[in-house]
Simulated scan of single mutants.
Amino acid sequence: MERAAILGVYDFIGYSLCKYMLNDGVEIAGVHIASKHDKYFTEEKRMEIGRNANFSEISFKEWQATRTNEHMIISLYEQFNQDWMIEQYLNGIITKLENMDYSNQTLILILPAHLALKHEKLTDSQLELLRFIEKVNISILEIYLPTIYGPWQPEEYFFQQSLNYLEGESSIPVIAKWEWIHDALYIEDAVETIMELAESGKDGKYFFASGKTNLWRSCANELLGKQTELLLRKADRTPEINELIKVKILKNNEKISMGLKKQKEQYFRIMESKG
Rank of each mutant, 00 (worst) to 15 (best):
E87T: 15
E87D: 15
Q88V: 02
Y89E: 05
Y89H: 15
G92E: 03
G92F: 03
G92S: 10
I93Y: 01
I93F: 04
K96D: 02
M100S: 07
Y102L: 12
Y102D: 08
S103L: 13
S103E: 07
I108G: 03
I110S: 07
L111Y: 01
H114N: 11
L115A: 12
L117Q: 12
K118S: 13
K121Q: 12
I133Y: 01
E134M: 05
E134W: 00
N137F: 04
S139Y: 00
S139N: 14
I140V: 15
L141F: 03
L145R: 05
L145D: 10
T147N: 09
T147M: 08
I148G: 01
W152R: 14
Q153G: 04
E155N: 13
E155Q: 11
Y157A: 08
F158M: 04
F159A: 10
S162Q: 00
L163C: 05
Y165M: 04
Y165P: 04
E167Q: 09
S170E: 10
S170H: 04
I172Y: 02
P173F: 00
V174N: 09
V174M: 12
V174L: 14
I175V: 15
A176S: 13
K177L: 03
K177I: 07
E179I: 09
W180H: 12
Y186T: 11
D189V: 02
V191H: 01
I194Y: 01
M195S: 07
E196Y: 07
E196P: 01
E199D: 10
K202P: 00
G204H: 02
Y206N: 06
A209G: 09
A209W: 06
S210D: 03
K212H: 07
A220Y: 01
A220T: 09
N221K: 14
E222A: 11
K226G: 07
K226S: 15
K226Y: 11
Q227W: 04
Q227D: 13
T228H: 01
T228E: 11
T228W: 02
